[in-house]
């Protein structure tokens, strides 16, 4: 697949959400480009990831650390482990630029995370910048906006 169809991009977003829900994190890390960054802004419509605080702005080193930590023996906040669940609306494909090998999707989701007796719901919008390498769709960057980004949260431990 050198030039993905709209349907391929949409399927990719669904598949990624399923991977996260099933905890297949090693596979999930393989979806990323080496320079890819996962950004979760703190402020509504935040434009600067660098000089104000974000909830997450993590490169592949940090994402790998996050995944390995989840499986660690002394990861106390994951005893017992959290589980998550995405309910996603059909993604919009906002950019299909085969010439630049750049594709952008915008997906509204309800994200549910649970551990012990606590379960919470986040309404989120995920913006994926995608690219195709060796016939496979890869994540160049991912931005996750929380509808209530300015609210006070307890632990959000997995990856929306």
């Amino acid at each position: 697949m050198s030039f993905p169809a709209r349907e391929d991009l949409i399927d990719f977003i669904y598949d990624e959400a399923r991977m996260l829900d099933e905890g297949r994190y090693t596979e999930w890390l393989d979806l990323w480009m080496p320079e890819g960054v996962y950004w979760m802004p703190l402020d509504y419509k935040q434009t600067d990831p660098d000089l104000v605080t974000s909830l997450l702005y993590e490169d592949q080193f940090m994402l790998r650390l996050r995944v390995e930590r989840l499986n660690g023996a002394r990861t106390f906040s994951q005893k017992p482990k959290s589980r998550c669940h995405h309910v996603i609306q059909r993604p919009f494909v906002d950019v299909m630029d085969a010439g630049a090998n750049r594709y952008v999707t915008n997906t509204n989701m309800h994200y549910v995370e649970t551990r012990l007796d606590d379960q919470f719901l986040l309404a989120i919008t995920a913006t994926h910048e995608l690219t195709v390498i060796d016939g496979k769709i890869r994540i160049a960057n991912k931005r996750v906006d929380l509808l209530n980004c300015d609210a006070a949260f307890g632990n959000i431990q997995l990856l929306p």
């Binding site: 979760m40 703190l42 660098d50 000089l51 104000v52 605080t53 974000s54 909830l55 997450l56 702005y57 940090m62 650390l65 996050r66 930590r69 990861t75 106390f76 906040s77 994951q78 006070a152 949260f153 307890g154 632990n155 959000i156 431990q157």
Partner: peptide
């Protein structure tokens, strides 16, 4: 930039360090 990174890595509700403190 370093301070912003410290804040999100150590003290965010999404921080791996913060998670274990809160626990």
């Amino acid at each position: 930039a370093r301070t912003a990174m410290y804040n999100r890595l150590i003290n965010a509700p999404t921080s791996m360090v913060g998670h274990d403190d809160l626990e």
